[in-house]
């Protein structure tokens, strides 16, 4: 466990010593504050648009941080040859994968926390309410969704040698799932066999990341979702995360590093 935590700590240290997070945070803050300074048509509900834009930026930033941070982990270790002194120590490849996952997930969680605090401050300053339970649920589900994305990207990083190709593929896949994943079963109904079975299989195989998107709940100040739904989604993310991590480890443990 000590070795896994050591690897995870290294990943977190790398994230906060690089500029990616700060740039994305400053951009999100600037765009949100600029939008907040405007009030189109004297609409008293304009704060909802502001919240929507801010949350959208947080979602984009979260995805970019999670995917880019994770995609470079194992390829960079190979490129700089640091993987050799690392694996020459009593560290298994499984521990390395787990440490990298944990580091990326915790680092992304820290970044999300900062983003959501900013969001909370902005919306509280406008609405004078702070539905902390809804925000907490949104943050929790968002973090677990990114856990699945990180596991998926880590699995991709042992297959694709170049971090840029892995990051691009993952970004396209994740955005694709978020935008059209929920409609695949409906699309399948309109197709002929064997394409119908294929699309149906895809529908049941892919992780439905849209389950974790509760932005509307936060934007419209709806009541928090029930805890069993939240728990179910957490379990769903844990299962998919584990599947991708095991797949990544199975590929990586047989890879020749010489």
């Amino acid at each position: 466990m000590n070795a896994i935590l050591a690897v995870a700590t290294l990943v977190i240290k790398e994230l906060y010593r690089r500029k990616d997070f700060y740039v994305l945070f400053v951009l999100t803050a600037l765009i949100t504050l600029m939008m907040g300074a405007l009030n189109f048509f004297n609409d008293d509900q304009v704060v909802r648009y502001l919240k929507e834009i801010c949350l959208l930026l947080i979602w984009i930033s979260g995805l970019v941080i999670a995917i880019t941070t994770t995609a470079r982990q194992i390829p960079a270790e190979r490129e700089h040859r640091t993987i050799f002194p690392l694996l020459a120590k009593p560290l298994t490849r499984g521990q390395l994968v787990l440490g990298k996952f944990l580091g990326c997930w915790l680092a992304t969680g820290l970044a999300l926390l900062v983003f959501y605090l900013f969001f909370g401050l902005i919306s509280a300053s406008r609405e004078h309410v702070w539905p902390i339970l809804s925000y907490g649920q949104a943050l929790w589900l968002h973090w677990f969704m990114l856990g699945v994305v990180i596991a998926m990207t880590l699995c991709g990083s042992v297959v694709f040698a170049a971090p840029s190709s892995n990051a691009t593929i993952m970004l396209v896949v994740v955005i694709g799932i978020l935008l059209i994943g929920r409609y695949l079963n409906k699309v399948a109904l309109q197709l002929d066999q064997p394409l119908q079975t294929l699309v149906y299989t895809l529908y049941y195989l892919i992780p439905h990341l849209e389950f974790f998107d509760v932005r509307d709940l936060v934007i419209h100040n709806w009541d928090p979702i029930s805890w069993w739904v939240c728990g179910g989604a957490t379990l769903y993310a844990a299962v998919y995360g584990a599947i991708f991590l095991i797949a990544g480890w199975l590929v990586f443990r047989r890879q020749s590093l010489g």
Partner: peptide
Amino acid sequence: IGYLPELTYYYRFL
């Protein structure tokens, strides 16, 4: 054991 590989670029941010 201790191992020193040839031409390794250690973590530059540390």
